[in-house]
Structures are given as C-alpha cells and as structure tokens.
Amino acid sequence: MQSRQISAEGVRMRFGSGSAAQTVLDDLDLTIRPGGFVTLLGPSGCGKSTLLKILGGILEPTSGRVLIGGRPVRDAVGDRQIGLVPQRPALLPWKTALENAGLLRQIATGARGRTETAQAAERALALVGLADARGKLPHQLSGGMAQRVSIARALAMDPAILLMDEPFGALDAITRDEMNEKLAEIWAATGKTIVFVTHSISEAIFLSDTVHVMGADPGRVVETLDIELARPRTREVFADPLFASYSGRLRSLLEPKAAV
C-alpha cells in the first residue's frame, strides 16, 4: 500500500466574523502514520469534530493544510480514500439500512458501479453486524444500529482511512465494549488507518496505538501518548496495571487543575 500518512500543518479554524469570531483550532500540527489506530481525546467543545472534518477534507480550514500521503486531502477524498463517520448518523429516513450504507459509494461511482455498490454495502453491513437489518428503515433501528449503518456507509467505500466521530457515544456500556472489540478486529483485518474521536478515556486506551489529548480554547493537541498494551486486546486489558497507569495519566491531562 502506498504511504497514506496524514499530516496536518498549522491548521487554524475560525468560525464567524467580527466580534462573534471564534478560533476553534489554532496552529495545530498532527502526524498520523498509515495503518495506525489514533484517538483524539478531549473535552466536549474543544474542536474534535471540527478537526476530524478538516482531516476528512469536508471542511476547509481557515489556514494551514492537510496532506494525505503528500497530496492535498481533496485528492484522497476524490479517490474514496477517506471514509467519515459523523457524530450524528445522518441517515436518509426513507432508505433502508442497505441503501443508506451504499449511498455515498453509489454517488462516488455513479450508475456504472451499481452492482459493486450493492455488494460493498452488503459486506459493510455484515461487518458491523447488521446483515439481518438490511431491509429496515432508520426509524426501525435503535440509535446504536443507526450509528452502525453510518459506519457501514463509510466502510462501503473501502477507504484506506476511516475517520470516526464518537461513533459509540450513544451506546450502552455493554454494546459499546462489543463494538470496540469489533472495530479492533476490523482494523486488524483490514490495515486501515483509523482516526477515532472520543471523550471516553477507557475507550481511547482500549483501541489506540496513540492518543492525542486535546485542550480547549483554542483547540490544540496538548499531549501525545503511545499505548503499548499487547494486541489483540480483550476485556481483560481493563484489569492490566498498565491500563490503570495510562488511565491516570490521561485523566490528569484532561483535568489539569486536579493534577497540580
């Protein structure tokens, strides 16, 4: 596979203008190596979603740039190299799970790719464990299932890079653990680069090679922590003393006042 390193260089994002202007991200640098599982961990409102959209090339930064394998992120998006799972599932309510899963790939490939799209959507649904729900409409799905359709929609494009914005935030703890294991499997099996946004410390540790801790006002990366727990990881990892030490470290980074 061609090198798909993601690098953000001096990314700055401002919303609004005049006195209402808000600097959400300021001079942010970030490098993500291909094939890694990287988490952006930070408090709510620190700009995680904004950063992820910029990395995914669907939001243009005010200044700075994002390169994928040395090329502008737009090119990678055009080649379906990036799949983005937004924070809300954003499914079309009149389309079945299967049709929703195929939506973006269908548009990217046009009418020619209809059969491949349907097959890819089918595989993606199976991958997230929703093969049986293919004919269901979004209102017939639970919140967690809808979110998994949204993940399938990204997977159906078979992207080298998967950007996920708090995909399991709405799930109960048990389902969340299951989905985390499932995601780790998918990642191990496919060698995709995954950039994962969360505000859950244990989720971040369980999944990641690298955790970038973000701070707010303005959003920036305050610390980067490598997680050196052996893989494949199971639920036993939660009992690992190393897990506890990572957890304490991350907690102190997220609550700087408590750490002093």
Binding site: T115, Q119, E122, R123, A126, L127, R134, A189, T190
Partner: peptide
C-alpha cells in the same frame, strides 16, 4: 475490506 469478508452475494432488493 474485501480481505475481511468472504463471498459477495448479490443482494435482493430490500
């Protein structure tokens, strides 16, 4: 992703 799953069935209309 193709590496992760086996056969590709042609889906019936849902």
């Amino acid at each position: 992703m193709a590496t992760a799953t086996g056969t590709a069935r042609t889906p019936a209309p849902a």
